[in-house]
Simulated scan of single mutants.
Amino acid sequence: MIIRHATETDLPTIVAIYNSAIPTRMATADLEPVSVESRLAWFKGRSPSKRPLWVIEVEGVIAGWLSFQSFYGRPAYSKTAEISIYIAPNYHRRGLGRQLLAQAIHESSNLGLKTLVCFIFAHNQPSLKLFETFGFEHWGHLPKVAELDSVERDLVIMGLRIN
């Protein structure tokens, strides 16, 4: 198992993993698949030294990814990043998200970060439990802010201060 920086040639697999999460209505507010082309600017906005995008490989196959995204896009928030984790369906429940999150927390200070935040649907109990296991706390609750297949869903904001 290897965690490494993503390359542009990984982008189709990253997008495929992301798109596989859309029909579950658990991890993303996108309702239709996204294209590789539509994610190119997002990919190019990643920086290995500031806002990396990592992939986790299992036996040479990309099984998931984690991204750091600048929070709120204002300079005063430069020490805070939003993180997102997506795991391919065939690799769920194998501890890959746990490994990616542990690495993210461990590397945060090297990336100049003091705070990590994430936004998780309230009905996504596996993700909430994962982040709670690593000490993330509930910092906010936005009731019924998303509508997925005519069902209104709550969003939980979780955060962790890096020591």
Rank of each mutant, 00 (worst) to 15 (best):
Q99L: 10
H106S: 06
K129A: 09
L113Y: 11
H123N: 04
Y86N: 01
S108E: 02
F71M: 10
L101P: 02
R94L: 03
S70H: 10
F134L: 14
I85T: 04
H92G: 03
L113C: 12
R98D: 03
I85L: 04
L96R: 05
G60K: 13
S70L: 07
T115V: 12
Q103I: 14
E107V: 13
Y86V: 00
F71Q: 00
A104G: 11
T115A: 07
L111W: 14
S108W: 13
N110E: 03
S127G: 10
P75L: 15
Y72K: 14
K114T: 14
F119Y: 10
R93H: 02
F134T: 10
E132L: 15
T133W: 08
L100T: 05
P126T: 04
S127W: 08
G73Y: 13
E82P: 01
N90S: 12
L66F: 04
F134K: 15
S67E: 04
R93F: 07
A63Y: 00
I105R: 02
E132M: 09
S67C: 09
I105D: 05
W65E: 05
S78G: 07
G95L: 09
N110S: 13
L116R: 12
S84A: 04
Q99V: 08
H123C: 06
A76H: 13
K114P: 01
Y91Q: 07
Q69Y: 12
S78A: 09
A81Q: 06
S109I: 14
F134E: 06
Q125K: 03
S70N: 01
S108L: 15
I62E: 04
Y77N: 07
H123P: 02
Q69N: 05
S67R: 11
Y72W: 09
Q103L: 15
K129G: 03
C118K: 08
I83C: 08
T80M: 13
V117E: 05
P126H: 08
S109L: 15
H123Y: 02
L96Q: 01
G97S: 02
Q125R: 00
P89D: 08
A102M: 08
Q125T: 01
L113S: 09
P126E: 05
Q69L: 13
G97Q: 08
F119K: 08
A104T: 11
I87F: 00
